[in-house]
Design a protein around this nucleic acid. Sequence first.
RNA 1: GCCCUCAUCGUCUAGGGGUCUAGGAUACCAGGUUUUCAUCCUGGCGACAGGGGUUCGAAUCCCCUUGAGGGUACCA
Length: 563
Amino acid sequence: MARILLKVLPKNYFSHRNQQSIIKYNQRKSEGKEVLDIINTEEKEVLDVINNLLEKEMILKMQEDKEMRLRFPPSPTGKIHVGNIRAALFNWLWARKKGGKLILRIEDTDTERSSREFEEIIFKELNWLGMDVDEGPNMGGDYGPYRQSERLEIYQQQLDKLLREGKAYKCYCSKEELEEMRQRQKEAGEIPHYDGRCRDLDPAEAPEDADYVLRFKMPETSEEIVVRDLIRGEVSFSSEDFDDFVIQKSDGMPTYNFAVVVDDALMEISQVIRGEDHLSNTPKQVKIYQALDFPVPDFAHLPLILDEERAKLKKRSDEQAVYIGEFREQGYLPEALFNFLALLGWSPEDEQEIMSREELVEKFDISRVNKSGAVFDREKLNWMNNAYLKEADLDRLLELALPYLKEAGYLEEFGWLMEAGRFSEEREPDRDWLKEVIDLGRDGISCLAELPAEVDLFFTDLKQEDPEAAAQDFQDPEVKEVFQRLKAELDGLASEADYSEESINQVFQQVRNETGVGGRKFYHPLRLALTGRGSGPDLVKFAWLLGQKETCRRLELALEQGE
RNA sequence: GCCCUCAUCGUCUAGGGGUCUAGGAUACCAGGUUUUCAUCCUGGCGACAGGGGUUCGAAUCCCCUUGAGGGUACCA
């Protein structure tokens, strides 16, 4: 009965959204509410049967959840980029949410392009983003080894099995021969595909000492291959659309489509969460699972991250940063990148956007992942990073900011900075002072690399942006009086301890009262005198951080220019 | 070419038959706060790709078209 009903249903009836609506229907029913207004009687009958099935399925699911094993299998053929790391992130989130295991597997079967250096970068960036794994090359586990290049015997066993059972065969065609074949097919208006010429080759006819590859036999008769996807429902393909693909290269290495199946099966991966670019290859993998008598896992194909041209984000599209390292180097906070990436293709039930790692784990649900590709919006990342920057612990921020300030040459003692006591006798910059500066500058930047430009006023000599206009301002008698009084009052503050934000503020207020000069007329020339610019940070704070001596010196300078 | 997937403001997205004159975020614009810039607050601009169905009712379900993306390797 259930079988018949299932046939009648649309092919993706079991997509998660439909499951949700069935759950809704159940809720209504259990609450004793009327349900026939939203569905008709026939549908109700179908739903009731499905309910039974789903219940059983849910029990199975719960068992699966118990030992959920997820994996992240990057290939070390380049620096890891946002596309890869986002897949890792979703696996990590789901594993942590479900109390499952996350396995890191290095897919280094491409001997030409793989390198240990890139592998190290993968470890480093995962670590930076705070994604720990439970099993992997560096910490081991019960399902190792976790590097494909170290699993060659395992593949060989499975390969031998397929060969023995006649499910795979040796192909002696050279690359040139295959290229020629493709070319000919193209010219004849046919779809390029391997024609299976070696499929039924008599072993006796096999050329001696010739290089060969192993090909997997796809079904001779047309059959439907169904991929069960947690995000997209059931996706079906026809076996006709696939040719006999290579599963072992002539150098003895397994190909991706083969190794990934053997590893996922042997490592008992329960859910394969990966990018949508793998969806089209999945039917090939399903056939291998079947040929090897392995249970087929659930799949979840994530929407791709796109560049501004809406194409899959690759190595580098123009100037756009794509490598994780670039974001770290530009001074993005890992928790900001993490948060941002989580929101690419997924959203929580509520409308909160800034979320800690813990909140993300708490709220994440694979069934809320959407299906369409997401453009990597640098503007929004900037906003988010700024939000995290503003909340970050200052001591931590100081450590992170130091290299940028050093790079800009701001941390070498010189002139007034030394005199103002911003460097110790050991010529180390005053950390408390630096923290104040960073605190003032963090509001206006989207990443730490922008910090030096934001706070350059504190580290470079006074330079009037528009000297003539400034000089003109300084000639005003009222302005002169203000400057004179300010200088006298500030100079009069006995010690460095007396020179505080509070006392400066008091002096400012006092002078405003005494001279009757206030508002813009008061602040604008003062700003020019102290900073050389028409806009900038809060002046009281600035004068304080500048120090008593330097502030008075600059007032003196302005008075001279006003002559 | 063939196969697969997808389609809501510029961008990220909510929504899954009535509560949608479509919600949030970002970006942009304006006003307020602040000595200025920024922050912050308030407001504004801005989208259901098109066409057919089904239905009393469609952003939502179905079909077609169009568009976009992915795959089609001895890359992963």
